[in-house]
Simulated assay, not measured.
Amino acid sequence: MRTELTTRTCVAVGCGRDPEGGEPQPRPADPGSLLCRPCRNGVHHRLGRLPQLYRASDGLLNAQSKQVERVSGGRNIGIPLNSGAVEARANVRGFLAAWAQLVVDERSVSAPDRTVPAMAEFLLRHRNWIDRHPAVGEFANELFRAFSRIQRLETAVPIRRITVSRCPEDGCPGELEAVLRPQDSRAGSLIRCTHTKEHTWPTERWSSLRPPRRASASLTS
């Protein structure tokens, strides 16, 4: 199937979007593609990173958060699952499986294994054909949504809060609360006052504070 590409503009949803809220001005499609160069590169980059993000989300399946559901069956003890992580991962698998099957059907090629890395690699091998497919705009839109959803899981880490003592600042009625985040979290751990937000201490200054008055701990997200 041959498609006339010479006078087309990019078919990706939101291409050339005005950050001020004006009407989008789609860029010209790249030669040999129905996508412009930036959108085309964005599609290939996100497709290549999906397996990495999918693997990274493994540890969030049982993370304690506000989105925890309890799944059980029979007499088994319920397993706490992070519904956001479950849904984001299912969205990635569904996206890859659907488009891999389209390539298999239309190109008469062998199907990849039904794993996220295998399906993503398969679509990358056929990326030039996909870039010219009439449905590539839909492909790009679904990919961007699936990518954004699973990428947001990186910041959905559990946070432990512990009340440790009274605020040492003169006249402050607040208490000190330790906010403990995982070591690989973008936002570091700190101690802060529950009354005055300017009263904060980084981890390296914790030893200079008063000894803990009590240690009532809770888990939040």
Rank of each mutant, 00 (worst) to 15 (best):
Leu219His: 11
Pro24Gln: 06
Asp113Glu: 10
Ala215Thr: 14
Arg114Cys: 01
Ala178Gln: 11
Arg160Gly: 07
Arg214Pro: 14
Ala140Lys: 04
Ile159Phe: 14
Arg181Pro: 05
Val43His: 00
Glu121Arg: 08
Arg8His: 04
Val164Cys: 10
Gly84Ile: 00
Ser185Thr: 12
Leu143Asn: 09
Leu5Asp: 06
Val136Asn: 01
Glu121Trp: 06
Glu106Ile: 05
Ala146Asn: 08
Val86Ser: 01
Arg205Lys: 10
Thr200Trp: 05
Pro202Gln: 00
Val71Lys: 09
His199Phe: 03
Gln151Asp: 08
Phe144Asp: 12
Ser33Ile: 08
Trp201Gly: 07
Val179Asp: 09
Ser208Lys: 10
Leu123Lys: 00
Arg89Ala: 01
Arg205Ala: 09
Ser189Trp: 09
Arg114Thr: 03
Arg192Cys: 11
Thr196Trp: 07
Thr9Ile: 10
Thr194Asn: 02
Thr163Met: 11
Ala85Arg: 05
Leu102Glu: 06
Gly188Phe: 09
Asn91Phe: 12
Asp18Ala: 06
Gln183Met: 15
Gly21Pro: 12
Leu209Phe: 00
Asp170Asn: 15
Glu175Met: 13
Pro211Cys: 00
Arg205Trp: 04
His199Gln: 05
Val86Lys: 05
Ala29His: 04
Pro112Val: 01
Val116Met: 08
Ile77Val: 14
Leu219Phe: 05
Ile150Gly: 00
Glu87Ile: 10
Ser110Ile: 04
Pro202Lys: 11
Val71Ile: 13
Cys193Arg: 02
Lys197His: 07
Leu176Asn: 02
Ala135Phe: 11
Leu190Phe: 15
Arg93Ser: 01
Pro38Trp: 10
Gly59Val: 13
Ser221Glu: 14
Asn41Met: 14
Arg192Pro: 03
Leu153Thr: 08
Arg70Thr: 15
Arg49Gly: 02
Ile162Lys: 13
Cys167Glu: 00
Asp170Ser: 15
Ile77Gln: 08
Trp99Ala: 10
Glu23Lys: 12
Gly74Gln: 05
Val13Thr: 12
Gly94His: 00
Val86Trp: 08
Pro168Thr: 03
Ala135Tyr: 09
Asp184Lys: 13
Arg125Thr: 03
Pro112Phe: 00
